[in-house]
Design a protein around this nucleic acid. Sequence first.
DNA 1: ATTCCGAATGTTGTATTCAGAATTCAAACT
DNA 2: AGTTTGAATTCTGAATACAACATTCGGAAT
Lengths: 271, 271
Amino acid sequence: MAVMHLQSHPSLVEQAYDAIIDEIADGALAPSTHLVQEVLAERYGVSRQPIQQALLLLKSDGIVQDAGRRGLVVAPLDMQMMRDRYQVRATLDALAAGLAARRCAASPEIAQQTKRQGEHILEVGFDAVAAGAIKAMIAHDVAFHAFVYDASGNPMIRPTAEIHWRFLRRVMGEVLRKSEPPISIWQQHRDILAAIVAGDPNKAEARILSHIQNAAARLAANAPTGDDNAHEKHGAQKGRTEAADPDDDVRLAPRMRRPAGPGAQAGGGWP
Amino acid sequence: MAVMHLQSHPSLVEQAYDAIIDEIADGALAPSTHLVQEVLAERYGVSRQPIQQALLLLKSDGIVQDAGRRGLVVAPLDMQMMRDRYQVRATLDALAAGLAARRCAASPEIAQQTKRQGEHILEVGFDAVAAGAIKAMIAHDVAFHAFVYDASGNPMIRPTAEIHWRFLRRVMGEVLRKSEPPISIWQQHRDILAAIVAGDPNKAEARILSHIQNAAARLAANAPTGDDNAHEKHGAQKGRTEAADPDDDVRLAPRMRRPAGPGAQAGGGWP
DNA sequence: ATTCCGAATGTTGTATTCAGAATTCAAACT
DNA sequence: AGTTTGAATTCTGAATACAACATTCGGAAT
């Protein structure tokens, strides 16, 4: 791969973190690949120092793990682990959807605003499906669920769930490609949003739960081969005129964030 | 504070991480304290390098945050945030308790083993309450809930919840000290365990939920003063013949862990 | 006296160097 | 031939060095 120079301001550590996790997510760095600091440093045109720090973060996430006595490897993608993470995410999503519904029930203004924001996300989501752009579909899926987390009014839900998204992202592309057209996903999103805006917590929870169980089942059905996979993908994708559209790219929150900005939310007391 | 020398094998980064988070948890480093790498490095007798990396990890946890243009500060302890984290934890604990109950219902052997392990934890927990040892009580409380996470059979729950424990630990001491004797906490633990072993998921979930709501309410009632607090504590505690008993200390999992050891769990497919 | 400019200082991010440990390779020995 | 020892190499963690930038302090100009 060509040497690309990173630039400062988002610190080199953050850039290295993002660059590496992206390469892992889309298979350019296959599971069980040995990661050598020097090699990565050279690839990104920086010293070993920021790479080492980025790897430390990745290791604390569990995205990479130490290999035997020396060095790190890309964590193998373990289907059981993915199911476990889907299950945790389901619980968190249900919590968020329920809270969001309650918030909408409590305040018409919030309901109104939630409706507007949600519908905008739905719109671009449907567009991505229509266009058949896999990466964009993933990005907008992330965006929809992040929207639900935020709509809950509990700012701790999003970062808690994001850890799992970092993993799930590794298999979502595969699943979307193999399974039937994902228009149903966005129909479910539409229904979830409707329940939230209508202020019906039970319905919102139930719908988002079945939505995620659906996704998990789809994963199980299309389980990528145990250890390494997703190789042709990268080559095949290179052809596709490299994402000019800025949201045609999967964006998670930057690794570093402050837990709650001043006045991030008014949040009523928890029942 | 005296210069204490850290030793290698648990890497200096990990040791620094633990040392700093401990000082934050028990108030030796008050909220909003400015953290200067050089100072910490000197205090622990290491170079800036491991300190910088430990701070990076702490920052990614949200335990410290950047202060304006330069430097880091200990995150102020925000009561709203604590409530939000309790809420997330409640959901995760309920998930774990429900799953654990289902597992017990499915297999008498597992139920038996869960019962034995759980009762042992209860025993030492009650002892700690009887002895009135605050730090030990916190440690055993952590141990009980970690036990429930593990009993769920979903190994992703524990690390997800542990993030929140790292914060909650900062206020638990305060709350335990101020509120009525925490014997009721351990009675609740006993009841939760009973429901799990009996294989009753609904009851287990309901009980652990009310247990945590209870704890959150206790926190709200004894909210430490907005920004800085817990100072006499450290001085007063110094007298108490520094924890000879190894579990007389709050132990969370080390920051670095592998997500799922080989054969960590057999875990049946999620419904 | 107050304000503005600039030098001195402090602090961080990044690079480079150093030391120790693990792996590899090869030659020597059985 | 197979095994074993040991030296060269590779790689990581930690220390030190360096450069950019922000803050502070002091003096000069108004």
